[in-house]
């Protein structure tokens, strides 16, 4: 079980308190109706799924409750950093 640094609580907490929430920085468009079918398909279904560095979201669901972003290496399963929602991609 990993330790995950919650950027809101400011400490590393056991993974069991967290829930994974998919790729980060996939912003919902302000006006989805302006999207073509292809653009909407990309937004809904297409994800980077990289081998290596991955920007992803987690929620400290059994802690402070906040969603936040993280950079995790999908090969080593190590977190490089975590940062608050709304902050620019790291």
């Amino acid at each position: 079980m990993m330790l995950i640094h919650c950027p809101y609580c400011g400490e590393r907490r056991p993974e069991i308190e967290f829930a994974y929430a998919g790729e980060a920085h996939v912003a919902r468009p302000v006006d989805p109706s302006a999207y073509t079918d292809e653009e909407w398909e990309r937004f809904l279904f297409i994800r980077a799924n990289p081998r290596g560095r991955h920007n992803e979201r987690w929620r400290h669901i059994h802690g402070c409750g906040r969603f936040f972003n993280a950079v995790r290496d999908t090969v080593t399963d190590k977190f490089e950093t975590t940062y608050k929602a709304g902050e620019p991609r790291k």
């Binding site: 907490r13 069991i16 308190e17 059994h62 802690g63 402070c64 409750g65």
Partner: peptide
């Protein structure tokens, strides 16, 4: 703090 006891919050 909020945390868990096994699966229970």
């Amino acid at each position: 703090t909020r945390t868990v006891f096994e699966t229970v919050e």
